[in-house]
């Protein structure tokens, strides 16, 4: 007998599985960000010069771009989180696809225009 695999990337993904994958990856990204955030805040303990130099290193275009990405992850995770709460507690399973597209639209509407704030 052939053993089963633990994941089948080729399985046809519908809205629900995409939402789950993005939600999980987003959650991991947010956790990594929190670690970085704690590290950066902790630089305050090393005195103003150390903190300022860290902050300077973090204001490069690469980090600006990552920051904008972070804002996107937060938005998606938050709106899809509300969708999941509605599915869990409000019996909204039947409307999960509509809810996903609403969450996705809200995420895009707040994320794309925000680029202007981050880059200009």
């Amino acid at each position: 007998m052939l053993k089963p695999k633990w994941f089948y990337p080729s399985y046809r993904k519908d809205v629900g599985e995409w939402a789950w994958i993005l939600h999980r990856l987003g959650g991991l990204a947010l956790m990594l960000y929190l670690l970085l955030h704690i590290f950066v805040t902790n630089r305050l303990a090393a005195g103003p010069e150390a903190f300022n130099s860290t902050m300077k290193a973090l204001s490069t275009p690469t980090f600006k771009f990552l920051e904008w990405g972070l804002w996107g992850v937060i938005l998606f995770h938050a709106f899809n989180g509300i969708r999941l709460v509605l599915i869990d507690f409000a019996g909204a399973s039947k409307y999960q696809k509509t809810l996903f597209w609403i969450a996705f639209a809200l995420f895009l509407a707040l994320w794309i225009p925000a680029a202007w704030k981050f880059f200009l």
Binding site: Y11, D14, V15, G16, E17, W20, L84, I87, D88, S93, Q96
Partner: peptide, 8 residues
């Protein structure tokens, strides 16, 4: 985890 593959 509300992935909905079963429903699909």
């Amino acid at each position: 985890h509300a992935i909905f593959n079963c429903t699909e």
